[in-house]
Design a protein around this nucleic acid. Structure first.
Lengths: 342, 342
DNA sequence: TTGAAAGCGCTAACAT
DNA sequence: ATGTTAGCGCTTTCAA
């Protein structure tokens, strides 16, 4: 237990070769004679030798892990993004470090500090800081990063996002097609681009239908959680000219809303129709399954990881062309919005 | 951009001191004169110097990150465990690497290999491999680890778990107290200790009530997911002497069950009462909120992290006494089981 | 195909 | 309080 850790030189000595040969047998197997290699591997096995990643990294200057910084693992949407990214990274032989910023710019900055010290191979980040300032250190250190779930026009950065304007339009178009003429938008923090874009999309749909903007009644929330959805339900029910349909900025809100309406004896979709956003698994697992705007979350994670790896592969990031990929959302219609009105 | 990375010697030169002093100003601030330190820090700032963690680690032999290997982030229960662990580790200034084994022993083994190469400070693991063999390399490398959510009798390892026998008993006691005399147990893979323990607890409750063992009718599932819960519902409804109450091995199953029953027009809790397990947030967010056995998930993660850090602190793990902490579950009664029968 | 040797950037022991 | 210096374990020329 207290035995000194076995290093490459121990293996070399036992196998009767030089350390360089041992190293080669790992990193350039072709350049070492098969029987030599076999002998070395046997010794490795016998001694239980494990490469020191820190030594390799110090020598080569780059680590074998990529970091993924998400806002909140409590939202299954981000879990799905993480899964997609993790699979892609592991397929490339890299480890993934999943971290949570809890939507806090300071936490984000702290993690970015950690990542630079670790000299991670790259970072996938769903930004918590709208200014993007907390990502500066990455650029300074030359650590490639890809922004996920947010469109970045900046030509210096790759990003993968989903067209939220289209998503908002899809949701409200559907509601209007069902005959609704008063639609609530249970939104979230206004500083989130996603929230603004979805509203924009909603308004587009309304304009396209020749309806006035005030057809949409926004009910902002601070947190986009189930609890916030319940709160919003109370506000909705207190409204004078109560909307007959609700577009929620995510499924957590929608789930909270649906539950509160049920408790209040308000029928979904007969009295109030609901459309959520993200299409998390739980959205389809409730008594009245939720219509939702599906985002290709896993695909987004996968793509982001691939773009990151491509960028990291280019030495010094030279000749790398930054791209912004925008994926399209899709409306998944279920019971919660299936009721014609008017 | 292509500028050579700035190292500690650059800082030393610019500040007109030696590298040792720069190092000290970071690691033993008290041993360097305040004004010297200030000057150094200014240079650090100006040059944008970032410590190389790999160099530190190579020198000191230990990294500043702990790994957390869970079965599946898609289950909010594990997310909660992860959150508790992450908070505790970060409070101690350590980074956390969250990874998913997808219940696969081979994935688990692969990650363990990664962790040994990284020489992480320690590992928190919810084991996927019931034999525990895939954790062997950790022991060989002297990397401390704590087993989470599974009781390990082995005196060589710390573990934090929840008393599943008590949980099963709690659930079924409650159901029996409501008057139920035919109870189904929608379980999971029999190789999971948790599944067996919860059944044992259920049978204890039944025996204590003076009822025969066949009062409990087990419906096994392969995956413990929402979809599996729906499937189980179909089997339940096909049963000759249909149980009036169901104990589910987790909330995902319970949610799927409840939805399928609703679709089939079977009233919960009037016709079938349901008790779930884990008390994930979604359990309380459905129309008919789920009674569930609450596990102190975050607490488990927090405790495990603390035990890990304690073990890692003891040099060479010498004089460290391994402990197995068993936490107690708690029944949270909600609507899904609130109906007296018989 | 293999060996010898020079560092990668840092910490810590020791010297001043 | 500060400077000097020897490695940590590995990869990678360069020679043989």
């Amino acid at each position: 237990m207290t035995k000194k850790t076995v290093g490459i030189s121990d293996v070399a000595r036992e196998a009767g070769v030089s350390v360089g040969t041992v190293s080669n047998s790992f990193n350039r197997p072709d350049s070492v004679a098969p029987e030599t290699r076999a002998r070395i591997l046997a010794v490795v096995e016998r001694l239980g030798y494990v490469r020191s990643e820190s030594a390799r990294q110090l020598r080569t200057g780059t680590s074998r892990i990529v970091a993924l910084l998400v806002l909140d693992l409590a939202n299954p949407f981000f879990v799905e993004v993480a899964n997609g990214a993790e699979r892609a990274a592991r397929a490339a032989g890299l480890g993934v470090m999943v971290c949570t910023s809890a939507q806090s710019p300071s936490e984000e900055a702290e993690y970015v500090g950690l990542f630079t010290e670790q000299q991670v191979r790259g970072v996938l980040v769903i930004p918590a800081d709208p200014t993007g300032r907390s990502l500066e250190p990455l650029r300074r250190q030359g650590i490639p990063y890809v922004v996920v779930d947010r469109l970045v026009e900046d030509a210096e950065v790759c990003s993968v996002s989903v067209d939220d304007v289209a998503g908002g339009r899809l949701a409200v178009e559907h509601l209007l097609a069902q005959g609704h003429r008063r639609v609530a938008y249970i939104s979230g923090p206004a500083h989130l681009q996603q929230i603004r874009d979805r509203r924009t999309g909603a308004l587009h749909a309304i304009a396209a239908a020749g309806l006035p903007p005030h057809t949409l009644h926004e009910l902002p929330t601070a947190h986009m959680t189930i609890a916030a959805g319940r709160d919003a339900a109370a506000r909705l029910l207190g409204l004078a000219d109560r909307p007959t349909a609700v577009f929620c900025a995510n499924d957590l809100l929608a789930l909270g809303l649906e539950q509160a309406l049920y408790s209040a004896g308000v029928k979904v979709p007969e009295e109030v129709a609901i459309v959520g956003y993200d299409d998390i698994e739980f959205a389809s697992a409730v008594a009245v399954p939720l219509t939702s705007v599906r985002q290709p979350a896993a695909e987004m994670g996968r793509l982001a990881a691939q773009m990151l790896l491509a960028e990291a592969a280019g030495d010094d990031g030279i000749d790398h062309e930054h791209r912004s990929v925008v994926l399209q959302p899709e409306l998944v219609v279920r019971t919660s919005s299936l009721h014609r009105v008017g």
